[in-house]
Design a protein around this nucleic acid. Structure first.
Lengths: 248, 248
DNA sequence: GTCGATTTGTGCGTATGTATT
DNA sequence: AAATACATACGCACAAATCGA
């Protein structure tokens, strides 16, 4: 079905997890479509050159994640598939981007506080000093968590951003309430790392999962920075597109 | 020094490896600068709430990787640091992008072959059918591997792309040799996943490491697709920037 | 409906790796 | 350094569910 696989022993990563990661990768890369029947456990065991129990551990982990589904006597099937695409351009709005791909999106305020601006935040927002509003949010698409984010705003400019976000679930709305009718994406930095414990919880991921981290600066129509944010996307559910035609 | 840490037990990833991954992440995220002295093993052990032996396993692994350097009686120090930034815009050239950040870059041809175009390749290159040249390359910056890539070209248009790349280590040069003086980035898709065995080998990563996957289409000045590529970047050494000001 | 073949689910014994004390 | 506990991986055997002949 797919190409030969390789396992590294004594690497600190259990063999069952390496196998689970490879299978999950194949599925999210589109090599294994939704509903596809996986090879029998014994065949996979010989292919990976491991014991059948080890394959079963990998399958058990992926079943728990909801990626695979095993049926006694019938086989094991791909239960999940297809990634969302998050298209980044100058006008980047969470719900609008996903609106053609899912039925509904939701933004939830997890926490908020007023704080002295950390150095990177102050630099990004072009503030010499002063207080910022920090909000921690998470976002779901059709009920599935896809991302969580931390965003900072100049407290002097948008003092009620947290309350306005809580009631609407929308940054666009919260900024409108502060008199900012439009905003544009100035820059985006993309990195990837393993999810931290809190992210695992919010995004319902399992240890070892990957998050795409988008660090963004949004500016108003006059080019003044109004928002600095770090959004963590579940990398197995979503990919980021950059369309150079429409980006500029 | 840095924030509190979290460890997940029975996740299939050994605790020493989770700790090693976190420390490596902190270093490449810039939280721990080059040459910084790490806290004593006992202090780290209490902070992570694990035994000192476990910390020592993590340090031993990072020392083997060349990320840390332990000196008996003095302490453990950061031997490595700072991520590269790969800036994606309309005119995306590997060596040029990194030229301000490193002394030298190199492109190495790993393999090449002529093949019938797979469906996604044919679609991206706007070919109904026909043969493509596929080249597998890897790229180093100051001798350190940062990425490996697979690229496809229309065999009718650039028949000698593999040989020209081999001699020059440059896509720009290889396309010039085929009469294509300029090309632009049309679209880029960014995803993240665990590195596969071959990538671990080429990029000198350890199991569980993350790669950023950039799937790109380059077009000539008339807008005809000429190159379809999938580049895998070592996520702990590099991040991707999208500058919306200059992207369009 | 029965039978055999296939496939997943379960149990047990053993050896090694991991983590703590 | 050693003793302990548990997780991981293997090998063998058998039970339970599914499917087609």
């Amino acid at each position: 079905m797919t190409s030969a696989r390789f396992i590294t022993r004594n690497s600190g990563v259990a063999i069952w997890r390496q196998i689970a990661d490879q299978i999950r990768g194949d599925i999210s890369a589109g090599k294994l479509a939704n509903g596809t029947r996986m090879p029998p456990e014994i065949e996979m065991a010989t292919r990976f050159a491991v014991n059948r129990h080890t394959i079963r551990s990998a399958i058990a982990a992926l079943t728990k994640e909801g990626v695979l589904r095993a049926e006694q006597g019938r086989g094991t099937f791909v239960a999940n598939s297809k990634k969302l695409t998050y298209r980044i351009g100058q006008r980047t709005r969470f719900s609008q981007i996903l609106s053609t791909q899912v039925r509904e999106t939701r933004g939830i305020l997890l926490a908020h506080r007023r704080e002295e601006a950390p150095v990177d935040v102050a630099e990004a927002l072009n503030m010499l000093s002063g207080e910022v509003i920090r909000i921690d949010t998470m976002h779901t698409a059709d009920g599935n968590p896809v991302s969580c984010a931390t965003a900072w705003f100049d407290a002097a400019r948008v003092p009620n951003v947290a309350e306005d976000y809580r009631s609407s679930g929308s940054i666009t709305f919260a900024l409108k309430a502060a008199g900012i009718d439009d905003y544009l994406r100035k820059s985006t930095l993309i990195a990837a790392r393993h999810a931290e414990a809190e992210e695992l919880r919010h995004l319902k991921l399992s240890p070892g999962a990957i998050v795409l981290v988008a660090t963004a600066i949004n500016v108003d129509t006059e080019g003044h920075p109004i928002q600095y944010s770090k959004t963590r996307f579940a990398a197995d559910r979503l990919e980021i597109a950059i369309d150079n035609d429409s980006a500029g």
